[in-house]
């Protein structure tokens, strides 16, 4: 493009020289001829340059680059999705492993004798597999929960809907009947929790406490435990058992670190003076 800007000047030059030629000097005339040829040459070169542009090769190249960019974006997106799937698969695998490990521990005779100590038979620690030694803290037999079927879920949802509508006694009755019929359902711990919560909402704090107590004893591994403890502490505060509430909150903070309930417990503990 520089050439292009230059062209007028060159033409100007030619024009000026032509004028000069009027004064007549053969040497000047020769130089003039040479210049004219040069100008023509340059014009031809420019024409070619232009043709390259107009031939659109650059534009083609550019649109190919754009298409490649788009393609790369799609590939990048696929990689991102695969990475995410990989991450969640690994997590699920870990969960499966832990679950399986838990179940095996109950079946394996060695560990069973540790987790359910029997006064009649004693096995020297040395005979136990090394891996199981750390398991000497008494394990409560975990309840193996089953995934709820649609009927169970519907019943649970109905009981929960009653709670949301403020029909607490209706909700308690529904959850209790759910709990007695499906104690092994994966929804059972939540049902137990909401019973306590509904009692709390009705300001029946003693009942709220015993309901949460039941949750903790029946489903010690449930993720509902922290919320249950929090609710229990609130109930204890309401009936004036501040020391017990403090203990409950401390237990919650110590055993369920990182949960939202534990965070709330910390704040509440601060104001429980």
């Amino acid at each position: 493009m520089f050439l292009r800007a230059f062209l007028p000047l060159l033409l100007l030059l030619g024009y000026g020289v032509a004028q000069a030629a009027l004064f007549g000097d053969s040497e000047t005339r020769e130089q003039l001829e040479a210049l004219r040829t040069k100008v023509l040459e340059m014009e031809a070169r420019m024409q070619r340059t232009e043709e390259v542009f107009m031939g659109q090769s650059l534009i083609e190249l550019h649109s190919q680059a754009e298409a490649l960019k788009e393609e790369m974006g799609k590939l990048r997106g696929q990689i991102e999705v695969l990475e995410d799937e990989n991450r969640s698969l690994r997590k699920r695998q870990k969960d499966f492993y832990l679950d399986l490990d838990n179940r095996l521990r109950q079946i394996e005779p060695g560990s069973a004798s540790v987790s359910v100590p029997d006064a009649g038979i004693s096995i020297p620690a040395s005979e136990l597999p090394a891996a199981d030694i750390k398991n000497t803290t008494p394990l409560k037999t975990p309840v193996i929960l089953q995934l709820p079927d649609t009927a169970q879920r519907n019943r649970y949802d109905a009981a929960y809907a009653l709670f949301k509508d403020g029909d607490y006694s209706g909700s308690i009755a529904s959850f209790e009947s759910f709990l007695s019929q499906h104690p092994q359902s994966a929804l059972a711990p939540a049902a137990a929790y909401w019973i306590g919560n509904a009692h709390y909402a009705m300001r029946n704090f003693d009942k709220a406490i015993s309901a949460q107590q039941r949750l903790i004893e029946t489903y010690p591994d449930s993720p509902k435990i922290p919320d249950g403890l929090l609710n229990m502490a609130s109930s204890q505060v309401e009936i004036g058992q501040k020391a017990a509430a403090r203990k409950t909150l401390e237990n919650l903070i110590a055993n369920h670190p990182g949960t939202e309930a534990a965070e709330k417990a910390k704040r509440r503990l601060g104001s429980l003076k």
Binding site: Y160, F163, K164, G166, W194, N197, Y200, A201, D227, L230, N231, S234, V237, E238, S271
Partner: peptide, 19 residues
Amino acid sequence: PLQAALNIEIFGGGANRVP
């Protein structure tokens, strides 16, 4: 005094709405 306040637990899921 703060202790007189209704102690409202705000649970997720819009469950425990205060009447």
